[in-house]
Design a protein around this nucleic acid. Sequence first.
DNA 1: GAGGTGAATTGAATCGTTTTAGAATAGCGA
DNA 2: TCGCTATTCTAAAACGATTCAATTCACCTC
Lengths: 335, 335
Amino acid sequence: MAASVKDVAALAGVSVGTVSNVMNRPEKVSAAVASRVQSAIAELGFVRNDAARQLRAGRSSSIGLVVLDVRNPFFTDLARGAEDRAAADGFSVILGNSDEKADREATYLDLFEVQRMHGVLISPFGDITPRLRQLRDRGIPAILVDRTSADTSFSSVSVDDVAGGALAVGHLLAKGRRRIAFIGGPLEIQQVTDRLAGARIAVAAHPDASLEVIPIDGLTVIAGRTAGTDLVGRAPTDRPDAVFAANDLVAMGVLQALMMQGADVRVPEQIALIGYDDIDFASAAVVPLSSIRQPSALIGRTAVEILLEEAADSTLAPRQVVFQPELVVRESTLE
Amino acid sequence: MAASVKDVAALAGVSVGTVSNVMNRPEKVSAAVASRVQSAIAELGFVRNDAARQLRAGRSSSIGLVVLDVRNPFFTDLARGAEDRAAADGFSVILGNSDEKADREATYLDLFEVQRMHGVLISPFGDITPRLRQLRDRGIPAILVDRTSADTSFSSVSVDDVAGGALAVGHLLAKGRRRIAFIGGPLEIQQVTDRLAGARIAVAAHPDASLEVIPIDGLTVIAGRTAGTDLVGRAPTDRPDAVFAANDLVAMGVLQALMMQGADVRVPEQIALIGYDDIDFASAAVVPLSSIRQPSALIGRTAVEILLEEAADSTLAPRQVVFQPELVVRESTLE
DNA sequence: GAGGTGAATTGAATCGTTTTAGAATAGCGA
DNA sequence: TCGCTATTCTAAAACGATTCAATTCACCTC
């Protein structure tokens, strides 16, 4: 049905090897023959069959990427960075959304294995190092993104959440706030505890500062609003003068509660507020939200970079790259 | 490096054809041989090479899906529906995010073409029917999702936005509201004009009802808030008693403006508010938002269903499936 | 026991591309 | 004219799974 190299070769009056050379090593072929082949390709509408190419090559020229939540801008930005870097070397990225479900994650890894992917990037759900080891045995290198590896036999590219927490609270302290509240949870989430740890470090550096931890049961707008309503209900003197929310969704919930009709709390005058992740909505909030930005695209780019190196030379020692987050100041912590 | 059928055959003491039969037509092989082969597969950790399989089969067992915005829950739900339906027939779905960019869209279609995908689902950006025709000539059927095709030579699965608009405004009218405002834009977006058209139809059925169109320059929270602030600035008697926002993001912006400290507008008592899309945030808003839900997963499932049929029989006539949206009532239009 | 039937298995061809060893050709100096 | 390189191209051998015609074998019937 579709034209093959053989058809192109016949039409151009050359051998199939020459057609392949025209496409892959044009410097090896004379200009006259090249143009003859090119017009044959155009005439037949020839499009290379990647399956045959891969079969011959032994592995795919695609990179698999499994993320925890494809709706999360952090991961789509990361994916974009990965795609750009991969495209620069002629690779494409296949995106899989595990949605924090082990079976979906496993399904994608199976797919990437039968497809003999060039490599796999994954922000894992649970411990999958055994599975990744299996992939590596089959010649498919794997790199962890957004999470440091439990064991260090895999490379990883992540962000320092402890530093991020310290950065957020350090900023609040620099603005003169002293009664800090951390709103976040559940503490099973590594990122939450890391950010809290960072907050503690920053507070410890100020003898007159205090840190109150307000646990919530999920990183959602509603959980944040509940906690915020709780703050509104307190006597003004019992309220913190600054809130560090474990992520932007929680911060937006808190903000909604504080800004509601009837609640007479002004942001940032009475309570300064900072979130984490710097999602789109953060800057679109009623009071634009200060936040901690992660270099998501850079993480993706770097991960692909390391992956390609490891795919080219499997003897390379694994590397752990940790990026520093960045403070984004907006109105919610001004003044 | 990795084990092949040949290795498995050698270890099990059978021919490669038999190994293939064990995997693909187990009923053709005796129990004794099957178990011998199975243990050889297990011992060697054999994993099928999909490239070889595809090469032989002539096409991939994956379906390509290109969406306009992978962050939009509508599309992730659609993708989920597509994946589930595809998995039921042993197909996998490769997700591409065009991000409303023509070049990204083209890149994915190129990828799907060299990969000889089993078929392609696409929510197109701009007019790509020529490109899709090209794919079809190469044996790759394509189906439009979330948009009806300009020409009817391609099947499509979409939602009736006119009906959705009528549903939203009909609901407001049923609640006794008469001064309706539509906030949305730009009018270049098909969905915006369709929803507005539906609103007009509903209003036309009530002689005493009026429809004010408030154009905005994008379907964003900020644009909504700007329009909302404008409403707050009006004399109360000049305000509409109900607002239909072109989507939930806009509605949330409007809601923020109305609920702000100083603005003395109560929702839904003074202004009822309804959005469109029923995104997660809609139910998490300060006042949970009524909205119009599209059967996103069903769209994905149906599209895959049609795609598989067309892939099996290319002579099938194209079909246009249009689903009806559904009203979701929450507090913002109660009372 | 000859012949027939059906089930189980084999072996080789095939998919479309890349790669490599070698053939053909041309150019050039001796 | 002969040999030598360089250049350009060809032909054939991979890659690994699937499929199908051919073969073997066991069993049944007459």
